[in-house]
Computed example of a mutant assay.
Amino acid sequence: MSLLRLAVLASMTVSMAVAATAQQRQNPAFADPKVDPSLPNVLLIGDSISIGYMVDAREAMKGKANVFRPATNCGPTTRGLENIDSWLGDRKWDVVHWNFGLHDLKFMGPGGENLADPKAAGSHRQVPIEEYQANIAKLAERIKQSAGIVIWRETSPVPQGAAGRISGDSARYNAAAADAIAKVGGIQTDPFFAYAESISDLQRPKNVHYTPEGSKKLGEHVAEVVLKALDSRN
Rank of each mutant, 00 (worst) to 15 (best):
S2Y: 02
L4D: 06
L6Y: 06
M12Q: 06
T13Y: 00
T13N: 04
V18K: 05
T21S: 09
T21H: 04
T21L: 05
A22Q: 04
Q24P: 02
R25H: 10
R25G: 00
Q26A: 08
N27P: 01
A29F: 02
A31N: 12
P33S: 09
P37L: 02
P40C: 03
P40M: 06
N41I: 06
N41E: 08
D47Q: 06
D47M: 07
S48Y: 10
S48F: 12
S48I: 11
I51V: 15
I51K: 11
G52S: 06
G52D: 12
Y53G: 01
Y53A: 00
V55K: 07
A57Q: 12
A57G: 11
M61R: 11
K62Y: 01
K64L: 14
A65M: 13
A65R: 06
A65F: 07
N66H: 09
V67A: 05
F68S: 05
F68H: 15
R69D: 04
P70N: 05
P70S: 08
A71C: 05
C74M: 07
G80P: 12
L81M: 15
E82V: 08
E82R: 15
N83Q: 14
D85Q: 14
S86K: 15
G89N: 13
K92H: 09
K92P: 02
D94W: 03
V96Y: 10
H97F: 12
W98Q: 04
L102C: 05
L102T: 12
H103M: 07
D104A: 01
D104K: 09
K106L: 06
M108H: 07
M108N: 14
P110M: 00
P110H: 00
G112W: 13
N114G: 00
L115Q: 08
P118F: 01
K119L: 02
A121H: 01
G122C: 08
S123R: 03
E131T: 14
E131C: 02
Y132I: 03
Y132M: 05
Q133S: 14
A134C: 00
A134T: 09
A137W: 05
A137E: 14
L139S: 09
E141T: 13
E141I: 13
I143T: 12
I143C: 09
K144M: 08
K144I: 09
I149W: 06
I149Q: 13
V150D: 14
R153W: 02
R153Q: 15
R153D: 10
E154D: 13
T155Q: 11
V158F: 11
P159K: 11
G161I: 08
A162L: 01
A162M: 05
G164W: 05
I166P: 12
I166N: 15
S167K: 14
S167Q: 15
A171S: 12
R172L: 13
N174H: 04
A177D: 11
D179H: 07
A180E: 10
A180W: 03
A182S: 10
K183H: 08
G185R: 13
Q188M: 13
D190F: 08
P191G: 11
F193S: 02
A194F: 00
S198V: 09
S200E: 04
L202V: 05
Q203E: 01
R204Y: 01
P205H: 05
K206L: 01
N207R: 02
N207E: 15
V208C: 11
Y210I: 06
T211V: 07
T211Y: 07
P212I: 12
G214L: 06
S215H: 11
E220F: 03
H221T: 03
H221E: 11
V226F: 01
L230C: 03
S232V: 01
N234V: 02
